[in-house]
Amino acid sequence: MNKVSLRLGLITAATLFTAACAHHPDVRAGADGIHRVVIASEDTDQGSREAIRQANSFCKERNQTAAFINENSKYKGDYDEKTYKTAKKASKAAQVLGSATYVLGGQTESTAGGIVGLGGAVADGVLGNGYNVEMKFKCM
């Protein structure tokens, strides 16, 4: 077996191993049977859905079902919450508008659309995930 084949095999194995462990990376098992999952997200709805998905995956591996004890959502962003929400909406709109203009416009419009879309993506990245959603649950 040559070095390239060996490296490719190792990379493939590492990728499969990582993917196998990736369905509930934010779950923290509790010694008392009460587990918790903490998700950083753009909004509380998205964070709640992801926390529920990971908790269900965690319990399913144990042939059980997740029973939720409580949920706590908290804004943790660098800006005040209203500014964060407004800026997130503006960055998403810039990405959509820029992408559409890039694809559908002429040469000049495409360049401008690309710049607007990229600016929206950069702004979205800078704003990051403003919310933490924490859920506590038991597997039953």
Rank of each mutant, 00 (worst) to 15 (best):
S91C: 03
E134H: 02
G77D: 10
S5D: 15
I11H: 07
T111M: 04
C59H: 10
K85M: 01
S57E: 10
A93Q: 11
L97V: 15
M1F: 09
L6F: 09
N56W: 06
S110M: 02
E42H: 04
G114F: 06
D32P: 02
V116L: 15
E109F: 09
F68D: 12
I69E: 10
F137M: 05
I11V: 15
A94F: 06
I115C: 01
L127P: 02
Q46Y: 06
A40N: 06
V27E: 03
K76H: 06
T101L: 12
T44F: 02
V27I: 13
K3R: 14
A112G: 02
L118N: 12
S110F: 00
K3P: 05
L16N: 06
Y84F: 13
D32C: 04
M1L: 13
T101W: 03
F17G: 08
V126D: 01
A121D: 06
K85H: 01
A19R: 08
Q46I: 14
G120W: 00
C139M: 05
C139P: 03
I69M: 06
T101C: 01
S73Q: 08
L16W: 06
V133Q: 00
L104Y: 12
M1N: 12
F68K: 13
V27M: 07
E109K: 15
V126Y: 04
A123E: 13
K60S: 14
T18C: 03
S41C: 02
S73C: 01
A31W: 12
S73I: 04
R28E: 11
Q64K: 11
V122W: 02
A29S: 12
A55S: 14
V122G: 01
K82P: 00
V116C: 03
L10F: 04
G114T: 13
C139E: 01
V122L: 11
A13V: 14
F68R: 15
